[in-house]
Computed example of a mutant assay.
Amino acid sequence: MSRRDARDDVTTVLAAGCVLWRHPPRGTHGLEIALVHRPRYDDWSHPKGKLKRGEDALRCAVREVAEETGMGCTPGVELPTLHYVARGRPKEVRYWAAEAVPDETFVPNREVDRLLWLPPRAARGRLTYDHDRTLVDALLTALDAS
């Protein structure tokens, strides 16, 4: 979905996603963050995608997690909205912190061929785009506050 900006007649692409997290298996402490690899762009990012016509942003975010990772999630607090230019068009992406539903299994698909669960520091290092790194910090702050 997109929104036309009357000031400059540019269409903003509207999208939503989640910073998906879990407590690591095997009884270790801390948390892990899911990153997806998109072969089309050869990048590592958080699960996200464009809103469908009439779709609520949170519903889109949960749908995109399911489509890109095969996992369910429990959304939590809303994280900062990112604004950037992608492929020559402005893009607005709303994000939520979301805990992964346990015991779900990733199956590679045409949009996402790999999924990694990484501790926050490693996730920051693996993310392709600087703006995605800010969401790791926002997630940690949100989880500390809860």
Score class of each variant (00 low, 15 high):
75 P>Q: 14
34 A>L: 04
131 H>A: 06
24 P>A: 12
25 P>E: 09
22 R>K: 12
127 L>M: 07
15 A>K: 00
75 P>S: 13
29 H>F: 11
85 V>E: 13
123 A>V: 03
43 D>H: 10
95 Y>V: 05
123 A>T: 07
93 V>Y: 06
60 C>T: 13
18 C>L: 03
62 V>A: 06
91 K>P: 01
43 D>F: 02
26 R>I: 01
80 P>Y: 10
49 G>L: 09
32 E>G: 02
81 T>E: 14
8 D>L: 10
23 H>E: 15
70 G>D: 09
29 H>W: 09
146 S>L: 14
32 E>D: 08
58 L>F: 08
5 D>T: 02
125 G>I: 03
80 P>E: 13
1 M>F: 11
39 P>W: 01
17 G>I: 01
92 E>T: 14
110 R>L: 13
58 L>V: 06
45 S>C: 14
51 L>K: 02
55 E>F: 00
89 R>Y: 11
80 P>H: 12
27 G>D: 04
63 R>F: 08
128 T>Q: 11
95 Y>C: 08
6 A>T: 11
56 D>P: 06
55 E>N: 01
113 D>H: 11
129 Y>N: 06
131 H>E: 08
85 V>K: 07
20 L>K: 05
28 T>W: 12
134 T>F: 11
33 I>A: 06
117 W>P: 06
25 P>C: 08
116 L>Q: 12
87 R>Y: 10
26 R>D: 14
94 R>Y: 03
26 R>Q: 15
20 L>M: 08
67 E>Q: 13
66 A>C: 00
138 A>K: 05
49 G>R: 03
13 V>A: 13
21 W>H: 11
28 T>P: 10
97 A>G: 05
18 C>S: 08
109 N>V: 02
76 G>Q: 06
96 W>F: 03
144 D>E: 15
109 N>G: 14
1 M>I: 02
22 R>E: 04
31 L>Q: 09
132 D>S: 10
95 Y>S: 09
63 R>M: 02
93 V>F: 09
47 P>T: 08
35 L>K: 01
132 D>K: 02
31 L>V: 03
4 R>E: 12
92 E>K: 11
54 G>K: 01
110 R>S: 04
112 V>E: 09
95 Y>T: 02
49 G>S: 01
117 W>V: 09
71 M>P: 05
49 G>T: 02
78 E>C: 04
86 A>K: 15
36 V>D: 04
92 E>G: 01
7 R>Y: 10
118 L>G: 03
